[in-house]
Design a protein around this nucleic acid. Structure first.
Lengths: 186, 186
DNA sequence: GTCTATACGATGATAGAC
DNA sequence: GTCTATCATCGTATAGAC
């Protein structure tokens, strides 16, 4: 065979990673198959050797993005308060706000996940439940964990809607305060 | 003239209202001009008698949706704590979560606003600053106002990503607790 | 103002050469 | 596996009849 068997795996992985970036930047629905393939140096026709449809790619992109999310490592390995604090401080930064393509998939892809078929939402739910369980352990409060997740995702969604960096910083700082308060309480 | 002058105004208003609903339901970019016009009983060709382009419609839809948002009345007229509490309880309800087309535009349209041109983000910012100012008055804390806005928007974005109503209710309840706590403190 | 018809590009997806 | 060529459909936007 002209192409080794793991070449297909590598191409698939490159496509998943690159598509995650493009989807978080400009939206998944708004990005065509040809554009996704061109980003990894291929043409649109080759796409269907890797995924049966564009929707299937979305499902896999979501799965991969969630596993590689800045939150993910805190979900798998139990996190002490200090580690969680540092992670959320970085999450609620202007650097993250201005870099959706390299950041958490929840703010930029959340709405598209919400409109996707049930299996996609189920895997999002499964991952979010794991995250919430991990944070509950750290915080000692299951409800505060959910509230903190919503707080962080909301801050980025709201912040990215804004035009001026000043106000964006205000929004982020306000949520940082909430995080600090939640992590200092018993 | 076969059509009265205010007939055009009425058509425009119907188009704005209907497009807001469709955009919040399925996304603005994903909804074609023909579909938007068909929803008010017209064909696609008539669209350009009312707006020079689809992007211009989006800008007007965002403006109108913000002014008619469940938050809007609380922004214009100063709100006492009790009024704000009742509004946020309704905001953080399963009824609202399952009815994006009739609810707040921030969760379903926020990401598209973030990717829109600067003027769109500027008017979103202007409106959000007014809302934050009003809530600051009620809460007596400018930062808590921003945090509360992010909390509410985030809860709906996260909740709508989920598959099961149980977990959705948990996410909403967690943010309700935060709202109650913020409104009870001095 | 609204219609139909149309231009023209982009879309998701397929077929067959290599 | 990837390419080019192609299909059918849809997208935004325009032109002209009524």
């Amino acid at each position: 065979m002209r192409y080794s068997t793991d070449h297909k795996q590598q191409t698939r992985e490159k496509l998943l990673a690159s598509s995650g970036v493009l989807a978080k930047r400009g939206g998944f629905a708004s990005t065509g198959v040809a554009e996704l393939m061109k980003a990894i140096g291929l043409t649109g026709g080759a796409f269907y050797n890797h995924f049966p449809s564009k929707d299937d790619l979305f499902s896999e992109v979501v799965r991969r993005e969630l596993c590689n999310s800045p939150f993910a490592r805190l979900a798998s390995q139990g996190a002490d308060r200090e580690r969680l604090r540092r992670c959320l401080k970085q999450y609620l930064s202007l650097a993250h706000l201005h870099n959706p393509e390299g950041g958490c998939p929840l703010p930029p892809l959340g709405v598209e996940i919400a409109r996707a078929e049930r299996p996609v939402r189920e895997q999002a739910e499964h991952w979010l439940l794991e995250l919430q369980a991990a944070w509950s352990e750290t915080l000692g409060d299951e409800r505060r964990a959910w509230a903190l997740i919503s707080q962080c995702v909301g801050a980025l969604v709201v912040g990215r809607m804004l035009a001026s960096e000043e106000v964006q910083q205000q929004v982020l700082d306000a949520s940082r305060d909430v995080v600090e308060q939640a992590l200092e309480e018993d």
